[in-house]
């Protein structure tokens, strides 16, 4: 059985034909049980993003992972770039923030 990191990678590869793709499980940085597979960070570099505003890029990432959101994926940091933007940044995505406790909080 695939873990969620692999499932996310597969779904994003199929949907976005990325030149570069990184999916990090950052759940350990948050207030959730060990192995929760709830918080992820995606860096996806694809030519398909050319000419698209950020919100359209993020919507495509979210849409590709819709089933996973329904199955317990809680947080997703998204860095969606074209190859040109990626190289301009020196091949790095920004770091994700610390938790502050709200992951488990329900209203």
């Amino acid at each position: 059985m695939m873990n969620r990191q692999q499932t996310l990678q597969q779904a994003l590869r199929a949907a976005l034909d990325p030149m570069h793709l990184e999916v990090l499980d950052e759940s350990h940085m948050h207030n959730v049980p060990e192995g929760a597979q709830s918080h992820f960070k995606v860096t996806v570099v694809s030519e398909r993003f050319a000419g698209q505003p950020l919100i359209a890029r993020h919507r495509q990432v979210n849409a590709a992972l819709r089933d996973e959101f329904e199955a317990g994926l809680h947080a997703l940091a998204i860095h969606a770039m074209t190859p040109a933007e990626w190289f301009k940044r020196g091949g790095k995505a920004p770091a994700s923030p610390p938790c502050l406790g709200g992951s488990k909080a329900q209203p």
């Binding site: 994700s96 923030p97 938790c99 502050l100 406790g101 709200g102 992951s103």
Partner: peptide, 9 residues
């Protein structure tokens, strides 16, 4: 008093 790092940022 943000309760989440993403909200805080």
């Amino acid at each position: 008093f943000p309760m989440c790092g993403f909200s805080s940022r």
